[in-house]
Measured scan of single mutants.
Amino acid sequence: MTFKLIINGKTLKGETTTEAVDAATAEKVFKQYFNDNGIDGEWTYDDATKTFTITE
């Protein structure tokens, strides 16, 4: 399955996707992406659209 990440950061904005077997696996991938890029904020997940959103 394809999961999308929408980034609404102070310095970084955009979208990316990842292929994962489930939302929990995608969450781990995206959290690592947050850490690697110094993004910290509030994030949500919409199961209907398989979209994670992080807002700094």
Results as ranks from 00 to 15, higher is better:
M1T: 12
M1R: 07
T2M: 12
T2E: 10
T2F: 07
T2P: 07
T2N: 05
F3T: 01
F3L: 01
F3I: 02
F3Q: 01
F3W: 04
K4L: 09
K4G: 03
K4S: 05
K4V: 11
L5Y: 02
L5C: 14
L5V: 10
I6F: 04
I6T: 04
I6H: 06
I6G: 00
I6N: 03
I6C: 05
I6A: 03
I7C: 08
I7H: 04
I7Y: 11
I7D: 01
I7R: 02
N8C: 11
G9V: 15
G9T: 15
G9H: 12
G9A: 06
G9D: 03
K10D: 08
K10W: 13
K10Q: 13
T11I: 14
T11H: 13
T11W: 14
T11L: 12
T11R: 03
T11V: 12
L12Q: 10
L12I: 13
L12F: 15
L12H: 13
L12R: 03
L12P: 03
K13H: 12
K13D: 05
G14L: 15
G14D: 10
G14M: 13
E15T: 09
E15L: 03
E15D: 05
E15Q: 07
E15C: 12
T16I: 11
T16W: 15
T16H: 15
T16M: 15
T16A: 14
T16Y: 15
T16D: 04
T17H: 11
T17F: 13
T17W: 14
T17K: 08
T17N: 05
T18M: 12
T18R: 04
T18A: 07
T18W: 10
T18K: 03
T18V: 14
E19A: 09
E19M: 13
E19N: 14
E19P: 03
E19D: 06
A20V: 03
A20E: 03
A20P: 01
A20S: 08
A20L: 02
A20G: 03
V21W: 11
D22F: 02
D22L: 02
A23V: 10
A23T: 05
A23Y: 14
A24N: 08
T25D: 10
T25E: 13
T25C: 06
T25R: 05
T25V: 06
T25Q: 12
A26T: 00
A26S: 01
A26Y: 01
A26L: 02
A26W: 01
A26E: 01
A26R: 01
E27R: 05
E27M: 12
E27C: 09
E27V: 05
K28V: 11
K28M: 11
K28E: 09
V29Y: 12
V29D: 05
V29R: 08
V29P: 00
V29E: 06
F30Y: 02
F30V: 03
F30G: 01
F30I: 04
K31W: 06
K31P: 01
K31V: 07
K31E: 03
Q32S: 08
Q32V: 08
Q32N: 10
Q32A: 12
Q32E: 10
Q32R: 09
Y33W: 13
Y33S: 04
Y33L: 12
Y33P: 02
Y33V: 04
Y33R: 05
F34N: 14
F34V: 15
F34Q: 15
F34M: 15
F34D: 01
N35T: 14
D36H: 09
D36L: 08
N37C: 14
N37V: 14
G38K: 12
G38E: 08
G38Q: 11
G38S: 11
I39E: 04
I39W: 12
I39M: 11
D40K: 13
D40S: 14
D40P: 07
E42V: 13
E42S: 07
E42D: 12
W43T: 03
Y45C: 01
Y45H: 00
Y45T: 00
Y45M: 00
Y45E: 00
Y45A: 00
Y45V: 00
D46S: 04
D46E: 05
D46Q: 03
D46M: 03
D47W: 05
D47K: 08
A48T: 10
A48S: 11
A48H: 11
A48M: 10
A48P: 07
T49I: 05
T49Y: 03
T49G: 03
K50H: 13
K50R: 13
K50L: 13
K50Y: 09
T51L: 02
T51D: 00
T51Q: 03
T51I: 04
F52V: 01
F52D: 00
F52L: 01
F52H: 01
T53C: 06
T53Q: 04
I54T: 03
I54V: 15
I54G: 02
I54Y: 13
T55E: 06
T55Y: 07
T55F: 09
E56H: 05
E56W: 08
E56M: 09
